[in-house]
Design a protein around this nucleic acid. Structure first.
Lengths: 346, 346
DNA sequence: TTAAAAATGATAGTCGTCAAGCATTTTGAT
DNA sequence: ATCAAAATGCTTGACGACTATCATTTTTAA
């Protein structure tokens, strides 16, 4: 019942342990014939390297870095919290995590940080790929040195990373459109969309998907010009108070970006219109409250905790040189007031 | 930079390795004073047992059994598929999984199976807890023998299991109600609900949540008498053709249970009413198709793959005697035609 | 044929924990 | 003070893979 060891493989292949080892770890200096024999034996026995033993012998501690924007908003706050919590558990598996913060949107600082990382000799890093162009060079340098790179939340060019963990923002936008469409039940309406910045890929993708579905399936919903609010609650509040404070025909509001505190504030000030549907992204204490009160109808949530867990699993697999474990596609959660997670967990 | 070993702990505590080991593995015969000293040292050093080394030394292969209904419907089919896929990956971690099938609703057979399991000496089992009363005794016997038990999808009495992995079906029902309510946009309507059997706890919970929200927040939606279709597509088809084939005022349909193939068939036959909202549970090839065609509006999906992954993680943690890894609450996915997962994955 | 190069075999120490057994010291009750 | 019981110390051999060294054999090229 016990699983075969490399000794068993060597024996079956009719070679020495050393040769079998040379084959499996690609140390070179092996005849093609031996490679064939060993591979055959591996297949026949169904041998799988015992990773526990391997890591133990190498006395390996995986050193990982998570490069995230600092706690500038609730979303990144959740990421930090989750990592803090996970650290202890990961210790048992000899995984050490450093969380490296940078100021969102400050590209220079990020670039510096990444260059600095090269010295630190991390086995793998996970990075929220907000900025694209400027960080390509330092990432390439890291990868050339053997560091595995996983991009999180927002993707990087494929050449820059080994793996991407994140939702499909286009789908998220389409989903929002469908829900708003359904909520109109055939009636006509006007939809106001706000975004942080359309230069941000995720915001752009969401808007794109949203617009697509609206145009194709809900032609009597009119999309107004998109306001960019730079993810700033204050600006968001002003913009909305302006738009909703006067007579308007707006029947739905979709905020593609952050700054929901301002949005909720504004709805409190001007009052929620009668027939109205409001969709935002990311769950936080305020959006949660707004959902419960009925100010917001839907929150589409990336579930950053799950993304982080996936990133960890992916990095581990990459470092062990095995394929990532099978896991279904990441789907953003759709929260209504009725299916909110228990407060204790968040 | 390397993490402390038990030797370090013993040294700091001023006791021998053996004593430290006795404390950590609760072998008894240790003075309270020593326990204190060792615990202090553990805390001070932040010592965490190296699980790789521990398992290696025990030469432990976790033997797990997953007790599932056989592939009687798409949902359980997905579970089987996922486990098949996962088996290979788990081998590297010395986890061997046996999938043990039983015929859904045949309690005698299940009971027999469970009694048989006792001999097989599994370290842990995960079981879809469809039947409650009759399997309590054999489960108790298993647990008394040290086997860890995790219930999946549908819970068992707390005394029967160490852990439950599954969604909150009450929330799922409430969510369905909210979506149907939103889709009416204030208009009145009549809602038809079908269930497999209200004796099944999950169906019951969903209905309960559904009814709650409807009554409280959408008083002008009338809930018709619930039809029980025994999760049988044929019966479902007949029932619906009957109800929808004649003049009716039905504006929404919610199927709490299985048998969606029959439901979809029926909608094809009688045609989908004009203003209509249809919600089902679980994604499968047919429901996927129905979503894309617009016959069904929403599919609430348990994501059994994720539940299985969680169950695995939970069992591992239980067997290693450590707390389960932090992971956010399980939320059923809400699928519209726009956010379906890529076909390749499912 | 011969020398160099390539391939292979044999072996031993390492990682951190577990699980023993046995010797020794300390403690507590009489 | 004496003796048994309890607590502690000490040591050793797994577990499976990794890594390195060195000796030996086989292959290849001149």
């Amino acid at each position: 019942m016990k699983s075969p060891t490399l000794h068993d493989v060597a024996q079956l292949a009719g070679v020495s342990y050393a040769t079998a080892d040379r084959v499996l770890n690609q140390r070179g200096n092996v005849a093609a014939k031996s490679v064939t024999k060993v591979e055959a034996a591996v297949a026949q026995l169904g041998y799988v390297r015992n990773i526990a033993a391997a890591n133990l012998s190498k006395n390996r501690t995986y050193r990982l870095a998570f490069v995230l924007p600092h706690r500038s908003n609730a979303f990144f706050g959740r990421m930090h919290d989750h990592l803090d919590q996970a650290k202890l558990h990961l210790k048992a598996d000899r995984i050490a995590i450093d969380v490296i913060e940078f100021k969102a949107f400050e590209i220079d600082a990020l670039q510096e940080t990444l260059i600095g990382l090269a010295k630190a000799q991390y086995d793998g890093i996970a990075i929220v790929g907000l900025q694209q162009d400027r960080i390509k060079a330092p990432l390439d340098a890291l990868r050339a040195a053997g560091t595995k790179v996983v991009s999180l939340v927002s993707d990087l060019p494929e050449s820059c990373r080994d793996y991407y963990i994140g939702i499909d923002n286009n789908k998220a936008g389409r989903t929002a459109a469908r829900l708003i469409g359904m909520a109109h039940a055939g009636a006509a309406g006007q939809v106001l969309v706000t975004a942080g910045s359309l230069d941000a890929l995720d915001h752009f993708d969401r808007l794109h998907g949203f617009r697509n579905v609206l145009e194709r399936d809900f032609p009597n919903l009119i999309l107004q010009d998109v306001s960019e609010t730079r993810d700033d609650p204050r600006l968001m509040r002003e913009t909305l108070v302006q738009s909703l404070g006067q007579p308007h025909g707006i029947t739905a509001l979709y905020n593609v970006g952050a700054g929901n505190d301002g949005l909720i504030d504004a709805l409190r000030v001007v009052g929620r219109p009668d027939r109205f549907c409001c969709i935002v992204h990311e769950l936080s204490q305020p959006t949660r409250q707004a959902l419960l009160e009925g100010a917001v109808d839907v929150a589409i949530d990336q579930r950053p905790e799950i993304e982080l867990n996936r990133a960890l699993a992916a990095l581990r697999a990459l470092l062990d040189g095995r394929p990532p474990p099978p896991s279904p596609e990441l789907i953003p959660a759709i929260y209504l007031r009725d299916n909110l997670p228990d407060e204790t967990i968040q």
